[in-house]
Simulated assay, not measured.
Amino acid sequence: MAELETIEMRAAYCNALLEIAEKDKRLVVLDADLMKASGVMPFKKAHPDRGIDVGVAEANLVGVASGLSLKGFVPFASTFACFAARRAFDQFFISSNYAKLNVKLVGTDPGVSAEFNGGTHMPFEDLTMMKMIPGLTIVEPSDDISAGKFTHLLFEHDGCCYMRLHRKKLERVYKEDEKFELGKAKILAEGKDAVVFALGGVMVRESLKAYEMLKKEGINATVVDVLTLKPIDRQLIIDQISKKHVVVTCENGQVAGGLASEIAEIIAYEGLSCKFRMVGVFDQFGQVGKLDYLLGAYQLTAEVIAQKVRTALRTTVKVGFGGPGFGMKIGNK
Rank of each mutant, 00 (worst) to 15 (best):
M129F: 10
I52P: 06
K149L: 03
K290E: 15
G135H: 03
A198E: 04
I52T: 02
E265C: 12
V317W: 13
G201P: 02
V103H: 12
K104E: 06
V106I: 14
F150I: 04
G191D: 04
E190T: 08
E156D: 14
G119F: 05
G289Q: 08
V173A: 05
T301E: 10
S38E: 14
T128R: 14
A312K: 01
K169L: 07
L182F: 01
M35I: 09
A194L: 02
A32M: 00
L136Q: 03
E3S: 12
E8F: 03
L105I: 09
L17M: 07
A37S: 15
A81H: 02
V64K: 00
V246A: 02
S38Y: 11
T151N: 06
P231V: 03
E58L: 00
F282T: 05
Q284G: 08
R205Q: 12
L199C: 06
I20Y: 02
I219P: 02
K169A: 13
V202Q: 03
N102T: 03
F93D: 11
G111T: 06
C160P: 10
Q254V: 10
K192M: 01
E190H: 09
F73C: 15
A147K: 01
C274Q: 06
Y298D: 13
R205M: 03
E265I: 13
A194H: 02
G296T: 10
V29K: 07
L68C: 09
I94S: 12
Y293S: 12
A198N: 02
T79M: 07
Q287N: 13
E115H: 07
H152L: 12
K25D: 15
G201E: 03
L272V: 01
V223E: 01
F276K: 03
T6S: 15
A11Q: 13
Y162L: 01
K290S: 15
G322E: 11
K192T: 13
K308H: 15
Y98A: 11
F197R: 04
A210E: 01
N15G: 12
S273F: 15
A81M: 09
N97M: 15
G51T: 02
A147V: 01
E115N: 11
E171P: 13
S66Q: 07
A114D: 07
D283P: 11
A2L: 14
L170W: 00
F92L: 03
M9Y: 00
A210L: 00
H157S: 11
A194G: 07
